[in-house]
Amino acid sequence: MATYTNTWRNKAWMGWFLMQVPLIFFMDLLEFIWPAWAYEPVGAPLHAAYSVKQWYIQKYSDPIVQWSPETATGHDSWMGLFLYLEAFFLLPTVLYGVYRLVVQRRGTSATDELLFLVYALEVAFTTLICIYDTFYWDNAVYSAELKREMQLQLYGPWFLIPSIGAIDMASRILARVKAADAALGAKKSE
């Protein structure tokens, strides 16, 4: 029988997952999962999301957000892999997290904690790669101030929050391992 961990930290995870759903569907994967007629023309159902993304691109000229297979220059081919990871691992994990923590409200099982640990590590690591990539953006196009803003204010939270989440899930798993070891030790000493 599975045991579930209910803690105030589950509410933070709920908030994170609920925030991720629209960001993944309507920003990160907008052009990859929706047909152009659904977002490009004025009056289209998703045009507001498209407008926000275009505003972000115009303001920051972020090459990572503008990436497409057609615009790839070779050094940034990893971005395609990140989009596949987002579509086929992150999105299902986020939807499962919403189901588990918001709909079921049962807490996390050991299996959930392992899944959420891998999820948090993947988000933190891929974001760290994006932060690292900003150091190599053309200085003639991207000022040092803009790079710092991208690194600390825009990408930084997407590295820091999942890193804290990974520590949370690792500590939960470690607590389960210690409890299992203690139970096994007590059983052997009988």
Rank of each mutant, 00 (worst) to 15 (best):
V98C: 09
K53E: 08
F32Y: 15
F26G: 10
D138E: 08
F17Y: 06
L154T: 03
H47F: 06
Y84V: 11
A110M: 14
L184N: 14
A140F: 05
E190Y: 10
E86M: 08
E70I: 11
E31V: 14
T134W: 05
Q153Y: 15
M169Y: 11
M79G: 00
D62Q: 04
S51R: 15
A120M: 00
K187I: 02
H75R: 15
I64Y: 07
V94S: 10
Y99G: 01
M150N: 06
E190G: 15
Y155A: 02
E145A: 14
Y136W: 11
K147I: 00
Y39E: 01
A72S: 13
L18A: 06
L101Q: 07
Y56A: 04
T126S: 07
A144F: 11
M19W: 15
V118L: 15
I131W: 04
R176K: 13
A124Q: 01
C130L: 08
T3K: 13
M14C: 10
Y39L: 03
A140H: 13
F26H: 10
L152T: 02
H75V: 10
R172F: 11
K187L: 06
Y96S: 04
R172S: 10
W8T: 07
V177P: 00
A183W: 09
D62R: 08
K188A: 12
W78F: 14
M27Y: 15
E113K: 09
A175H: 12
I57K: 13
Y50R: 01
W8D: 02
S77C: 03
I131N: 02
T73V: 12
S68Q: 05
P63R: 04
D76F: 12
M27R: 14
I129F: 01
Q66M: 13
I24T: 06
P45A: 06
P41H: 12
A110K: 15
N10H: 01
L90E: 15
G74P: 02
P92G: 10
I161F: 13
K11S: 11
Q153F: 13
T134L: 07
E70W: 11
V21M: 06
S51D: 10
G165C: 11
R9C: 03
L18E: 02
M169C: 09
F159V: 04
F125I: 14
T108W: 01
G43Y: 13
Q153D: 12
V42H: 06
L121A: 08
Y99V: 04
R148C: 02
R9H: 10
Y56D: 09
G97S: 04
A144C: 06
E190N: 13
W37D: 14
S109T: 15
L101R: 05
Y84C: 09
L128Q: 00
Y60L: 11
K59E: 10
Y142E: 03
Y155R: 07
A120P: 05
R106Q: 11
T108D: 01
Q66H: 03
L184T: 11
A110T: 12
G185R: 15
L160P: 02
F89E: 05
V94H: 08
V65K: 06
L160Q: 02
R106E: 09
F89P: 03
S68G: 07
Y99E: 03
D133S: 12
F88L: 14
F26C: 12
L101E: 05
F159L: 14
W78H: 06
D168M: 06
D133K: 15
T134P: 00
W78T: 00
G185K: 15
W13F: 14
P162S: 04
P41D: 08
V141D: 00
P63L: 07
W67K: 07
